[in-house]
């Protein structure tokens, strides 16, 4: 781990230790003794030393955000994306409506109809981002890995309708090559193939 990657290490629990707390003084005499002890031990200067050493060591942890960015976890849940099939470029969404059903803030709506080949297609897909709480249930429930959470967390806008339409979320056809397979919420685990019981086929 080097550079910005180290900040992603959240596995810090092994460094925890218990702080010893001395008993609280009860009598004035004890309190006086504590004052004397602390003064003679120059406890105040310990604090000063720590801060001074930090300054001299100059180990700055600041990420200067717009210029520098932390890499975000694949499970990060930012504004949704609708993915396409990598080979054909067809939309993955089959309009099953599970995301609509599971959405706990009730902010997804889909219009569907049969297309010219008789397949179900979503003609329109919207998420009301004024309501969305980015819980990730929609991505988790999606059987086709079609609705996923993108990595683009910079979504300030003048209109709340922004980012919410199908054309905003769907991978543009010319960007198909840049589309990344989604490893986050609801994506199959690396060992998924091993866990599946195969259906016997007669052919």
């Amino acid at each position: 781990m080097n550079g910005l990657e180290q900040f992603k290490d959240r596995n810090v629990s092994q460094n925890y230790y218990r702080v010893k707390i001395e008993p609280y003084p009860k009598t004035p005499w004890e309190r006086f003794k504590r004052v004397v002890r602390r003064s003679l031990r120059l406890e105040l200067f310990v604090g000063l030393k720590i801060t001074l050493m930090e300054m001299l060591r100059f180990k700055i942890h600041t990420i200067q955000y717009p210029k520098e960015k932390l890499p975000i976890s694949p499970r990060y849940r930012a504004v949704h994306k609708l993915l396409r099939l990598l080979e054909s470029g067809n939309e993955r969404c089959i309009g099953c409506g599970l995301c609509e059903k599971i959405c706990i803030s009730n902010c997804i709506r889909i219009d569907t109809r049969p297309d010219e080949n008789g397949r179900k297609i979503p003609t329109e897909y919207t998420i009301n981002f004024g309501r969305c709480i980015f819980c990730g249930y929609c991505a988790e429930v999606c059987p086709e890995l079609a609705i996923v959470h993108g990595q683009d967390y910079e979504h300030a806008s003048e209109q709340r309708a922004q980012f919410a339409l199908k054309e905003d979320m769907l991978t543009p056809l010319d960007k198909l090559k840049e589309q990344k397979e989604y490893p986050g919420f609801g994506a199959p685990t690396p060992a998924a193939d091993k866990l599946i019981k195969k259906t016997p086929l007669a052919y």
Binding site: I94, G95, C96, L98, R119, K120, P143, E144, K197, T199, P200, L201, A202, Y203
Partner: peptide
Amino acid sequence: GVCDKSGECDLQNKNLEFRVDSQEFSAR
């Protein structure tokens, strides 16, 4: 996922009821 009956389908319901989660039979 696309079937109109999904959600009110007897086959779905009974498959869940009898915990059919794998298939041993097959036919052409």
